[in-house]
Amino acid sequence: MTVAVRTGTWQLDPAASRVGISHRGMWGLITVRGAFATVGGRGEVTADGAAAGVVTLDAASLDTGHAKRDGHLRGAGFFDAEHHPEITLAVDGAERTGDDTVRAAGRLTVRGVSRPITVSATLADVADDALTLTTEFTVDRAEFGVGRKQLGMMPGLTTVTATLRFTRAAG
């Protein structure tokens, strides 16, 4: 059974949403995990079923539970949050690929560098006034100039996990 999503404007509920990252480091022995404390976004579903929107992360809000590491990740060698305060995923189009799955295509921007991206998400808890999207995908941080190869640092993929709760905007 396909779940219908109402047309209109949808607003991200930051209190009910979470975006986290994980990356293997230290010769692959340790996985560093963190979450962004400040998440925002919005979306729109049109009458023909097309969807578009944006999710924005405050780069300085990354919390890994280790203050010194967090400062380093926010610094010039990684996210450079002072000069690039936002990380954005701008979705130009999204389509249903199954009863509860969606494929979204757009651009991911990190450190002022934008790259095309396509992600799959699961649609859950759909009601007239709210819905949740969950996704997990990988990003090659080198494509965005994030970090540099150092002794003990693992190059390659960072996993992004997100649970995004949207509520239907009034009007």
Rank of each mutant, 00 (worst) to 15 (best):
G152E: 11
G145V: 00
G156N: 09
G43V: 00
A169Y: 08
G20A: 15
H72Q: 12
V3I: 12
I30Q: 06
F79H: 02
T161G: 13
G41K: 04
V139C: 07
D92G: 15
T88A: 13
V19N: 02
T97I: 12
A16F: 03
D80P: 04
L62Q: 04
G34K: 04
E143N: 10
A94Q: 09
G53M: 02
A127E: 11
T9K: 14
D100Y: 00
A104Y: 08
V55K: 02
T134P: 02
L133M: 05
L29R: 13
L73Y: 08
G53K: 04
T167E: 14
T31E: 13
L131W: 05
G34F: 02
E136C: 01
R103D: 13
P155Q: 12
T138C: 00
G25F: 08
V160G: 10
T88F: 07
T134C: 05
T7Y: 00
D92I: 01
A105G: 15
A76N: 06
S120A: 14
I117M: 14
G65D: 05
V146Y: 06
T9S: 14
A16Q: 13
A142I: 10
Q11H: 08
G49P: 02
R141N: 07
S61K: 03
D100E: 14
F78H: 10
G49V: 07
T122V: 12
G156S: 11
T56N: 01
L133V: 06
T118V: 14
P85W: 09
Q11T: 15
G53S: 08
R115C: 12
A127T: 13
D13A: 08
A52S: 15
F36P: 00
D48T: 04
G77R: 07
R107N: 13
L57Q: 12
G71S: 15
H23L: 04
R96H: 11
D80W: 02
R103H: 09
T167I: 11
H66G: 09
D92H: 14
T2A: 15
T64G: 00
A67M: 04
L133G: 08
L131Q: 08
R42V: 09
G25C: 09
D80V: 03
L73D: 05
T109Q: 11
T135N: 05
L133Y: 06
G28T: 03
L131T: 07
A59M: 10
A94P: 03
A170N: 11
A169I: 07
L12A: 10
A37T: 02
G147M: 03
V19C: 05
T159L: 14
F144N: 03
H83L: 08
A67L: 08
V45N: 00
T132K: 08
D70I: 02
T161K: 12
V102Y: 01
R6G: 15
H66S: 12
G43A: 15
A67S: 13
A169P: 00
L164A: 08
A52K: 13
A51W: 05
R107T: 11
T97K: 02
